[in-house]
């Protein structure tokens, strides 16, 4: 019985130590683990023109403009700060105003010139009729603003 207890204590302690080590390592490398940076992350730091960034947030409502030479411009917002983005290429199916997006590219003066745009979808699943009903009853904004506050659409790390 005694040896079993010894082994139990040993395994338990080893796991605890391991968890601590992992937590320390992960928090130390937080910068490289995050997949993208929010407009606030970008705005509060000074951006260097030759560095590649991943910028993520919501596509601001009413900001999408399609220019004639297949260039799309829009603004990415995290409700606190906003960055102007320009992109030439095919947009993913889920690219929509008010929806999450992650872009990759360089800063050309103040405009983020992206060469890749990925859509980030939220965790809500429902049929279109339910979405329409929610919009009609006015519960939609309540729900989406609650989500934005929780940072679900923007990604938890920016909060």
């Amino acid at each position: 019985m005694k040896r079993k207890h010894k082994r139990l204590t040993f395994v338990g302690l080893a796991l605890l130590l391991l968890a601590t080590a992992a937590a320390l390592t992960l928090s130390a490398f937080e910068e490289s683990i995050v997949f993208f940076q929010s407009p606030t992350d970008i705005v509060t730091k000074s951006v260097s023109p030759n560095k590649r960034y991943r910028l993520g947030g919501l596509v601001e409502e009413g900001s999408v403009r399609k220019k004639d030479d297949a260039v799309v411009t829009f603004r990415i917002t995290d409700m606190a700060n906003t960055v102007n983005v320009s992109y030439r290429g095919i947009l993913p199916d889920l690219f929509r105003e008010g929806q999450g997006v992650v872009t990759e590219g360089f800063f050309v003066s103040d405009v983020f010139t992206a060469d890749e745009v990925l859509a980030k979808h939220d965790e809500n699943y429902m049929p279109p009729e339910v979405a329409d009903a929610l919009k009609k009853s006015g519960k939609w904004n309540e729900m989406s603003s609650k989500m934005k506050k929780q940072g679900h659409v923007l990604g938890g790390g920016s909060q």
């Binding site: 997949f35 980030k120 965790e123």
Partner: peptide, 17 residues
């Protein structure tokens, strides 16, 4: 780490539904 990755860091993957 898998379970909470979507809450702890910015990810392309959406949070749990």
């Amino acid at each position: 780490i898998i379970k909470f990755s979507v809450d702890w860091w910015n990810t392309l993957h959406q949070p749990a539904s």
